[in-house]
């Protein structure tokens, strides 16, 4: 059984690598297909054909596309993601501090949101169609449906401008103690967490309700098993697959999908770097960012898949 699982995991990781290759190739050629290149973007409104051509030559952008791709691949195989076309700095050097910032924000958000979402999602499903459930449903839907930039902006305006409790910008240089850490991260994390939580609560609730209506749960209820025991021992193990998937999907966007939050709190993370680089056609950085996002996503979903597979096997074996 564990050998079988190991084989499944190995295969899942193998296929994840296929996705990775697909993404890298797709992104390289998609970026190349975008109108204009880094030379045009750098010169902007002042671009003249001659100037752009000269710059292109000095950046080796006049080489054929496939050759540039090969160069990049060769570099990656040696663990070198190349240098930024724009700044001439090594990509790794530009990425590292941003990755650290992004992981910090994503980590803090995960720690806050996952346990809360599980708890509230389970509670909603357990006390389904009660007032608690209805209020939570409207609340979560409301939070998801209001644009994130509005939530963040209102939060800053109220707590930073009107009440002056927290800073309006999240400058991690100002962190020297746990208290300062909490103050600095309070706004972005609570905004981000409320949005991710709302998504997760919705999905967890739906999955649990689905499981609750299964015959064996009804049987357990009839047999008089206490509700807590039903939730933890009968329902949860069977809902773990979809729940893990929902959580993985929500979390995977915490690295690359938080441009709005990073912009509003002036927090220098990866998402902002990616957007900048797409706008400026700085291909090596786009590639590396995409690779990181893809890896995170694949890691999380593969983890979810493995959990799902394991739970299914366990369910069947039992």
């Amino acid at each position: 059984m564990s050998a079988g699982l190991a084989r499944l995991v190995a295969r899942r990781i193998g296929t994840a690598l296929c996705s990775l290759v697909f993404v890298v190739v797709a992104i390289f050629f998609m970026t190349a297909a975008l109108p204009g290149d880094v030379a045009d973007m750098l010169l902007g409104q002042n671009a003249t054909p001659a100037a752009a051509q000269a710059l292109r030559h000095s950046l080796h952008l006049d080489q054929p596309l496939w050759l540039r791709f090969m160069h990049w691949c060769a570099g990656m195989l040696h663990g070198d993601p190349g240098t930024s076309l724009l700044t001439g700095r090594p990509v790794s050097e530009m990425l590292a501090p941003r990755l650290y910032n992004s992981l910090l924000l994503a980590g803090a958000t995960t720690v806050v949101s996952v346990p809360l979402a599980l708890l509230l999602g389970l509670a909603c499903a357990t006390w389904r169609d009660t007032h608690f459930d209805r209020v939570m449903t409207v609340l979560t839907l409301g939070v998801v449906s209001v644009p994130a930039f509005l939530i963040a902006t209102v939060a800053v305006f109220v707590f930073a401008v009107q009440f002056r409790i927290v800073p309006a910008l999240s400058d991690i240089r100002s962190i020297h103690s746990v208290g300062q850490f909490i103050l600095t991260f309070a706004m972005p994390v609570s905004t981000l967490a409320s949005i991710t939580m709302a998504q997760m609560i919705r999905m967890i609730r739906a999955c649990m309700i689905d499981v609750f209506s299964a015959p064996y749960i009804e049987m357990a209820v009839l047999k008089g098993v206490p509700p807590i025991r039903i939730v933890l021992h009968h329902a949860l193990p069977n809902a773990i697959g979809p729940v893990a998937n929902a959580i993985a999907l929500s979390l995977s966007s915490l690295l690359g999908g938080v441009v709005v939050i990073e912009t509003i709190f002036n927090y220098p993370g990866l998402a902002q770097l990616m957007v900048d680089s797409v706008m400026l056609r700085d291909v090596p950085i786009i590639q590396s960012c995409a690779l990181l996002f893809c890896l995170t996503y694949l890691f999380l979903t593969t983890l979810a898949d493995i959990v799902a597979l394991a739970s299914v096997r366990k369910g069947r074996g039992a």
Partner: peptide
């Protein structure tokens, strides 16, 4: 620093961050 979002830039001034 640079804050491209209009409202955030103004909020930063109002809150005393800049």
């Amino acid at each position: 620093t640079g804050i491209s979002d209009d409202m955030s830039r103004h909020n930063a001034l109002l809150a005393g961050d800049v």
